[in-house]
Design a protein around this nucleic acid. Structure first.
Length: 351
DNA sequence: TCTGGGGTCCTAGGACCC
DNA sequence: TCTGGGGTCCTAGGACCC
């Protein structure tokens, strides 16, 4: 199967509608104001050359590239471009398409020449959208996904059981999709720093360290093994959430209650569009400087706006009543009934 | 340097039950 | 006085991805 990833997607879409930005360092994030509290969504390759990357605070990015063009996030524009890309993929011969986000998808197909298929696919996407993409080819989804990075930009790369360890073996575990900073750090303390070392590690021992599911899953990641079937079953959302970061920390309880009310009302917009009732509510509170507390409440299935809002405010009351408040941000999650998960469930461990 | 916004899933531990 | 074993449900928190 193949994994397709659009190159610098968000920045590329912006440059398409403002051709004068081509070749300039473009940084998309927040409301496009580098003095605000927000982070980089996507930086163009020209900006990345200065060390700017996704997740970096805009203020830091501005310090690194004072001359960069800063643009606000325009989700609707990216979604529209994404839909054209995905439609183009689905129009390829024999293609089964599993969308992973705005800018990536797995494509399953039967072909004797995957490399040629990949090139053809790149040409079709470029022709229809003027966007470049990289394509990974693999004998498992994991290998295809990892291969894409090696093909960037605008290239094609193949990873199979034959060359997996040869190509990936010496790389840090952090390079694997699903292994982040924390887990790679914990692995390192166990003497596991490279992909080859992870591949050779005992799954039972990993289970002891990381739990019965995640331990063996990391072992599989190290070997590049797992599912090899692309699943195009329509996505069913597990829940809806909204998150916000305050430009200045909130310090009093009234402000917090107002913020929770507003956030919950915003989530309810997504819930209303979804149509299913709510069964659970979680409030994640980000305190300055950067600690998170969770307050959760299971609730009887309901679609009643007033009741859901009231319960959200109950949770707000649990926010540190005792000590001084310094709130950096808030996130509210609402979950749908389990039995609504009729579609396929593309879990990480399911791979 | 200082912390987005929208998602997903897993784990630990306590409460409660038989 | 000391402390079963198994199960489920719930809350809190952690981690990862794009």
């Amino acid at each position: 199967m193949l994994h397709v990833d659009l190159d610098q997607f968000v920045a590329a879409v912006e440059v398409l509608r403002r051709p004068e930005l081509a070749g300039l360092p473009v940084i998309v994030g927040g409301r496009g104001d580098p003095t605000e509290r927000a982070v980089v969504s996507t930086a163009s390759y020209e900006a990345r050359a200065f060390g700017v990357g996704s997740g970096m605070p805009l203020r830091v990015a501005a310090r690194k590239v004072p001359d960069a063009v800063f643009l606000p996030v325009d989700a609707d524009a990216y979604l529209a471009a994404s839909e054209v890309v995905m439609a183009t993929l689905r129009a390829q011969p024999g293609a089964v398409v599993q969308v992973l986000g705005w800018d990536e998808a797995f494509v399953g197909t039967q072909t004797g020449d995957p490399e040629a298929y990949a090139r053809q696919l790149q040409a079709a996407v470029l022709d229809r959208t003027q966007l470049h993409c990289s394509v990974g080819i693999g004998d498992t989804l994991i290998r295809a996904k990892n291969a894409t990075d090696l093909g960037k930009p605008a290239g094609v790369f193949q990873l199979t059981a034959d060359n997996w360890l040869e190509v990936m073996g010496a790389r840090p575990t952090r390079d694997l999709w699903g292994i982040g900073a924390k887990i790679s750090g914990r692995l390192a303390t166990l003497g596991i720093s490279t992909v080859a070392e992870l591949a050779a590690a005992d799954p039972q021992e990993l289970a002891g360290q990381f739990g019965p599911k995640m331990g063996p899953w990391y072992s599989q990641l190290g070997r590049g093994e797992g599912a090899s079937v692309v699943d195009d079953t329509p996505w069913v959302a597990r829940g809806h959430s909204r998150e916000t970061t305050f430009q200045t920390d909130l310090t009093d309880a009234d402000q917090v209650r107002d913020a929770v009310r507003g956030l919950a009302a915003a989530v309810l917009e997504g819930v209303a569009a979804d149509g299913r009732p709510v069964v659970g509510l979680t409030l994640k509170v980000r305190y300055a400087p950067f600690t998170t507390k969770t307050h959760a409440k299971k609730m009887p299935e309901t679609s009643d706006r007033g009741e859901i809002l009231a319960r959200a405010l109950d949770l707000a009351g649990a926010i540190d009543p005792g000590r001084p408040i310094r709130l950096l941000g808030l996130r509210a999650d609402m979950t749908m009934p389990d039995d609504a998960r009729t579609g396929h469930t593309p879990t990480r461990s399911g791979w």
